[in-house]
Design a protein around this nucleic acid. Structure first.
Length: 505
RNA sequence: GGCGUCUUCGUCUAGCGGCUAGGACACAUGCCUCUCACGCAUGGAACACGGGUUCGAUUCCCGUAGACGCUACCA
C-alpha cells in the first residue's frame, strides 16, 4: 500500500446521545490520527431516516468539544471532501449503486418485508443468498420488462449485493490479525432502499470512506462480522488497492454481569454513560452526563483510554499529548473490558488533586451556591486548599466535609462518637480558658495561634485540639485547628466558642 | 441454530518459552496524627479445563467449556 496521509473518521448516527463506548472509539481514532500527523473526520451517518433524533448531532459535537477531541474536517468543521452528512450525499450513492447494478454485482429485489418475514417463518435459518435468491422476486428471476414495469408502477424495491459463495474472505485486522470468513455464510445485503432513496450503512460507509480517502477504519468489534462484506464491496468497486486497514476495538461491558454496557446499567448502578446530560426529545427522559456529574474531561479521557489499551508499563496517569505519543493500536486488548466506573472516579480524584486550587473555584462556587452559601474567591480557594486531599472523588463531595467553614454548628449531638469522646467537664473548663486567652489574642494568623496555644497547652499539659474541634466544627472532621481558626477569624471563632459553651452545658 | 471473536487476581491489565506471575482500582491491617483524610508500609487475591510440542509452558498448536458479538429495507 502506498504511503498515503493517515485519515481516519468517527461516524456516529444521530439517533440519540453519544454512548461512552463511542467516545472511546472516537478517542482512539483521534490518538491514532494525531500520532501519525493525520486527519480525523467527523461524518454523520443518518441513512436511517426513521431513527433520526433532532439535537443528537449538536449534542455529539458539543460532547467532543468538552472532551477535548478535535476534528479536522466534517460536519460543522468544514473540509473539501463533503458533504459529510450522508443524507446529503444521495446522488453520490445512487451513482455507485447503479455502477454495481450495471456490472451485475448487485440486483434489484421486490420482496416486501412481510414476504421476507413469511419466508423466515417458513424456512428455518432462511438467508437471502445464492442458495435462495432464485426463489425470490428480484431482477435475477424476473424479466427485464417486468422489472422495468414494476419500477414504473412505483413498486418499492431494494438493491442487494450479489455475493459469490464459497470464497474465503480475509480481513487483516490491526488488532486481531488475519480473520477469515467464508462468503457462503454472508447474505445478499441490502445496499440501497428505494423507499427513502438512501443507501444502508454498508454501501454508504464504503463509498464515503473511499471518497474521503480514509486510510484506517477503527471501530467497535460489533462490526467485525460484516468486515468481510466490506472487503467484498471494496473489490466490487475496484478499490481493493486503496482499501483502508481495519482495527476492531473490544467492547465495553457491563460493570457487573455480562453483555454490552448500556444506558440501563448507568441508571441502575448510578454512573453516567453519556458525556453530557441528555434530554430525550421523544420521551422527555433525562440521562445524566459526565460533565454535569462533576467529572473533569481529562479524567474521563484518561480513564477511557486505558479501557482496552495501556502503554505497556505501569503508567496510568497521562496527558492527551503523552497518550498521543505512546498510543499503539496494535497493542489494544482483544477482550472486552468491564466498565469499572469506580476506577473512573479514582481518575477524577487524581485529576482534581493535580489541578490548581484556583481552577477548582468555579465548580466549588456552584456547590456552595446550591447550598445557599456566599463566599469570596479567596475563601473558596483557601477551603479547597485545606480540604481537597480529603476523601473526595468530586468537588461536590467537598460540601458535607466543609460546611462548617461557612456555617457555625447550631446543635451538638452528645451521642456523637467524637463529641462523646472529647467533651466533658475538663474539656469545657479548658475551652473557657482558651476563650479567655483568645480574647486577648490580636494576631489570628496560623503561626501566631500556634505559638500562643501550643505554649499554653505545653506548660499546662493540655490537649485542647479535639475539644476545640467539637466547639468550632461540631463534629470529628475538618482541617488543622489553627488553619480553621485563622480562616474563621477572631470574631467568628470567639462567637462560636461562646455559643458552643452555652449549648454544651 | 449458524458464523466470528475472546479467556491472567473481584475489576482494568503487564507478561510476548525459564519470573517468588508485576502494577493499578477496590478491600483489609499497621504506622503517622488535634478529627477526618493525605501519605507511607503490609496483606489476601489470578494464568478456564484437557491434550499435545518442548529439557521446560501463563506464553506455541489442537480440542472442550464458557463469555461476548453478529446473524434487519439499524447503525
Amino acid at each position: 500500500m502506498s504511503e498515503r496521509k493517515v485519515r481516519v473518521r468517527f461516524a456516529p448516527s444521530p439517533t440519540g446521545a453519544l454512548h461512552i463506548g463511542g467516545v472511546r472509539t472516537a478517542l482512539y481514532n483521534y490518538l491514532f490520527a494525531r500520532q501519525h500527523g493525520g486527519e480525523l473526520i467527523f461524518r454523520i451517518e443518518d441513512t436511517d431516516s426513521t431513527r433520526f433524533v433532532p439535537g443528537a448531532e449538536e449534542y455529539i459535537i458539543e460532547s467532543f468539544k468538552w472532551l477535548g477531541i478535535h476534528f479536522d474536517e466534517g460536519v460543522s468543521f468544514g473540509g473539501n471532501h463533503g458533504p459529510y452528512r450522508q443524507s446529503e450525499r444521495r446522488d453520490i450513492y445512487k451513482k455507485y449503486v447503479n455502477q454495481l447494478l450495471e456490472e451485475g454485482k448487485a440486483y434489484i429485489a421486490f420482496d416486501t418485508p412481510e414476504e421476507l418475514d413469511a419466508k423466515r417463518n417458513e424456512i428455518a435459518n432462511f438467508q437471502y443468498d445464492a442458495s435462495t435468491r432464485s426463489m425470490m422476486r428480484n431482477s435475477l428471476t424476473l424479466s427485464k420488462e417486468e422489472v422495468e414495469q414494476m419500477i414504473a408502477d412505483g413498486k418499492q424495491y431494494v438493491v442487494r449485493f450479489k455475493i459469490e459463495p464459497n470464497e474465503d474472505v480475509h480481513v487483516n485486522d490491526m488488532i486481531r490479525g488475519d480473520v477469515v470468513i467464508n462468503s457462503t455464510i454472508l447474505d445478499d445485503k441490502v445496499l440501497y432502499k428505494s423507499a427513502d432513496e438512501l443507501p444502508t450503512y454498508h454501501l454508504a460507509n464504503i463509498v464515503d470512506d473511499h471518497l474521503m480517502e480514509v486510510t484506517h477504519v477503527i471501530r467497535g468489534e460489533e462490526w467485525l462480522p460484516s468486515a468481510p462484506l466490506h472487503v467484498l464491496l471494496y473489490r466490487a468497486f475496484g478499490w481493493a488497492d486503496s482499501m483502508p486497514a481495519f482495527a476492531h476495538l473490544p467492547l465495553l461491558l457491563k460493570p457487573d454481569g455480562k453483555g454490552k454496557l448500556s444506558k440501563r446499567d448507568g441508571d441502575r448502578l448510578g454512573f453516567p454513560v453519556f458525556p453530557l446530560e441528555w434530554h430525550d426529545p421523544k420521551t422527555g427522559e433525562v440521562s445524566s452526563g459526565y460533565r454535569e456529574s462533576g467529572y473533569l474531561p481529562e479524567a474521563v479521557i484518561n480513564f477511557l483510554a486505558l479501557l482496552g489499551w495501556n502503554p505497556g508499563n505501569d503508567q496510568e496517569i497521562m496527558t492527551m499529548d503523552e497518550m498521543i505519543r505512546l498510543f499503539d493500536i496494535t497493542k489494544c486488548s482483544k477482550a472486552g473490558a468491564k466498565f469499572d466506573y469506580v476506577k473512573g472516579m479514582w481518575f477524577n480524584r487524581e485529576y482534581i488533586l493535580m489541578k490548581d486550587n484556583k481552577e477548582l473555584v468555579p465548580a466549588f462556587a456552584k456547590i456552595l451556591q446550591e447550598n445557599g452559601i456566599q463566599a469570596t474567591e479567596e475563601q473558596m480557594e483557601a477551603v479547597i486548599g485545606m480540604m481537597k486531599m480529603k476523601k473526595i472523588n468530586f468537588i461536590k463531595d467537598l460540601w458535607p466535609l466543609c460546611d462548617f467553614f461557612f456555617t457555625a454548628p447550631t446543635q451538638f449531638d452528645k451521642t456523637d462518637k467524637f463529641i462523646k469522646k472529647n467533651w466533658n467537664e475538663q474539656a469545657a473548663a479548658d475551652m473557657a480558658e482558651l476563650l479567655q486567652i483568645l480574647e486577648a489574642q490580636e494576631d489570628f494568623s496560623v503561626e501566631a495561634l500556634k505559638q500562643t496555644i501550643d505554649t499554653w497547652a505545653e506548660t499546662n499539659g493540655k490537649k485542647p485540639w479535639n475539644p476545640w474541634r467539637v466547639v468550632l466544627v461540631g463534629a470529628g472532621k475538618g482541617p488543622d485547628m489553627y488553619e480553621l481558626a485563622a480562616f474563621l477569624g477572631k470574631e467568628e471563632t470567639l462567637k462560636r466558642m461562646r455559643t458552643a459553651l452555652e449549648l454544651l452545658k
